[in-house]
Simulated assay, not measured.
Amino acid sequence: MDFLLVTIGSLIAAIGFNAMFLPNHIVAGGMSGLAVALEKLCSWQPDYFLYGSNIPLLILSWVFLGKENFAKTLYGSWIFPVFITITKQIGSFTDNQLLGAIFGGVIVGFGIGLVYYGDSSTGGTGVLVQIIGKFTPISLGAAIILTDGMVVLTGLIAFDHETVMYSLIALFIVSRVVDFVAMGLNNAKNVMIISQKSEEVQQYLMDEISRGVTKLRVTGGFGNEEKEMLMCVVDGGEYPVLQRNILAIDPEAFVIVMPASEVLGRGFSLWKHYVHEDHVGALRK
């Protein structure tokens, strides 16, 4: 699945690059942005430049991100230039630089977001973004702005200041879309439930949808009455059914739902462990 995401994402990003960024001289950061400037200054082919420039960055990927990530990054850094070569004849979607920056940012950002969601990158400064994301609390979008902002400024050498302004617009859009795709695809919900029938609700959560439950002791602010709150993390697709069934158990249940941008553990980042119905009672004892 990760390699499939990297392949699809690289193809989408390559289309956005050749159809929007390159013909409109949008230097939206990264080695691909630098390739746009060098294509103008030195007539270097962007795909060939990307092949060569990834070598030292792949070494960093091996050292800091591990062998598994290196394998996927090696694949991404190879397949992205290949798709740029394949799609270079696609032609420009627009000659308007503003439209190229906006829609190119959306297309490229969506593609790169899929690649990052596949725990990889297209090489280039994407490796640096992953290293920053792994060792610091900085989000993917902010890391892109930090690493690629300097690349955008190189556009001043090859192009006029207005082109650089459009490039900054594109860079901002790319970073926002990457954050949305890479984090938004994880649509897990953190559900907190206060109910007079908490035991029945807990049994439903554990037996019917096989999700773990955490019990929290809470105190009401009005009557200082102690109650029990259940906390459970579910997939976004599971929540509508969960909501209906909880309210069927207790129509007066108080339910709080919050997005969980990242969930690690069994059932999410690890395989879900299903307990056979006959063993549920024994396990509880």
Rank of each mutant, 00 (worst) to 15 (best):
Q196H: 10
E39A: 12
L5R: 13
I15W: 04
S261K: 14
P251L: 03
S261R: 14
M1P: 06
I102Q: 06
F93R: 08
V115W: 09
V233P: 01
G76K: 01
D207Y: 11
G105L: 12
A248P: 06
A170L: 11
F83C: 13
A142F: 08
D278M: 04
L41E: 09
T214F: 06
V6L: 02
L205R: 01
R266M: 11
T214S: 08
M1N: 08
V6Q: 00
L140F: 15
G109E: 04
A13G: 00
Y51M: 14
V63Y: 07
F21S: 02
Y166V: 10
V257Y: 06
Q89M: 09
L50R: 02
V255I: 15
I194R: 07
S195I: 11
K197C: 08
I12D: 07
F222V: 12
I112C: 10
I112S: 03
Y75T: 07
S195C: 12
Y117M: 14
G237S: 12
G104S: 00
P56A: 09
K215Y: 14
M165Y: 11
D235N: 13
P46G: 09
D207I: 13
Q243Y: 12
R217A: 13
I132A: 10
E228N: 01
T94L: 07
D250L: 05
L146F: 09
G52T: 12
K285Y: 05
Y116W: 11
F64Q: 00
Y239Q: 02
D160N: 15
V275F: 06
K272D: 07
I86M: 15
